[in-house]
Structure formats: C-alpha cells, structure tokens
Amino acid sequence: MHIAEGVLGPPILALGGALSLAGCALGLRRLDENRIIPVALLSAAFFTASLVHVPIGPVSAHLILNGLLGVLLGWAAFPAIAVALLLQALLFQYGGLTTLGVNTLNMALPAILAGYLARPWLNREGWPRFFSAFCCGMCGVAGAAILTALSLGFTDEGFATAAKVLMFGHLPVAVAEGLVTASAVAFLAKVRPALLQRPHHSV
C-alpha cells in the first residue's frame, strides 16, 4: 500500500504533504505529554502489524490495523501513523520522504473517520459491536485503498488501471481486516472496555 518515491505528481505530493502536516499538527496539539508513551506503543503496534501476514485464499496479505488505531487514538492516530511510516521508510525503504505526506494521509484519514463513526456503537453488546468493529476495520483498509488509488489516478490518467487493480485487489484484504478487527475489539471489550470509550482519556 505504500506508494514508492518518484511515482506521484507534484500537486498530489504537495496536497498530501500539506494535509498530513495539518493533521499531525492537530493530533500533536491534542496529545499531552502523559499520553506520548501509550501512543508510541500503539504506533509501534501499527508498525509491527505490517509484518503479520494473514492468509486470504491462495495468497496472503499483511494486517494494517489503521481502523483499530483510529478507534483507540482519535486524532493522535495522525502523528502515530506518520511516525510508523517514517520508520518503515528508514528500516525497510517502504515509501520515503517525499511520499510520507501522501502515504500518511491515505492511511490516517480513513482511520480517524472509521474510528469516529464506529466508536459510539462499540459499547453495545452483541451484533452492533461486531458489525461496527467489522465495518471500522474494513473501511480503514478500503478507505486507504481508495485514497491510494485516487492519488495514483489524479497523477496521470495512465495509472487508471493500476489504480483499479490496487483498489479491487484490496477488497478481500479489507474483509479479512474487518474480521480481525472485530475479534480484537470483542476481546478488548471483554477485558478493558474503557479503551473503547473515549480515545483522549482511555489511553
């Protein structure tokens, strides 16, 4: 899902960079010093999730967990994702300095949106919780895939097919991620329900 360096056009890079900068600034302002360490640990969890492969039919894909991060962190997911992506660039050369903005925006915006929409439903027992957590995980990945496809599509119309392949290729991944998120949320709800209530106080 990381777009490599040198692929995107200047307007997209600039727009992604500016919006990510704004998002990170907002996220950092809302993040008080006492919460930096928990946020760092969750950011590290986001980083390590990308090393966990789940089988989907004959192929396998790695977890992304941006929806879950959105539920747990709210706006702080922005800097958390930016930091994790920066480390992935440093340690694995996935993405890089110029695409950091776009890649962060593509992952963090759906995460925050999905988290915000799902949170009120997560405390209701049974199906509402399962369904909202499933949608949250699925929309996190699907939203990221759509934004990635849009960033490619708006760069050059020649990328249209590549963008479509990328988007539809991620649909099964989104479903798997939805199921994993739903059971992770079910576990957290049983063990530590406070985590799922208000992101600014629980973590």
Binding site: P38, A45, P55, V180, S183, A186, L188, L195
Partner: peptide
C-alpha cells in the same frame, strides 16, 4: 493460520492481547 473464520478470530484476539499488553507496558514505562 488459514483463511477461515476461526483463524481470523484467533489472530484478532492475539492482536487485542498485544495491544492491551503494550498499553499496560506503556503505563509502567511512564
């Protein structure tokens, strides 16, 4: 791990457990 509901549920629980432990660990570090 296979592509079955049981696998996804197990992995999800593992993710939840890892998150929970990391949050607790963060508290101790702090």
């Amino acid at each position: 791990a296979t592509s079955s509901l049981h696998s996804y549920r197990t992995l999800g629980t593992l993710v939840g457990l890892t998150l929970l432990r990391s949050i607790d660990r963060a508290g101790r570090i702090h």
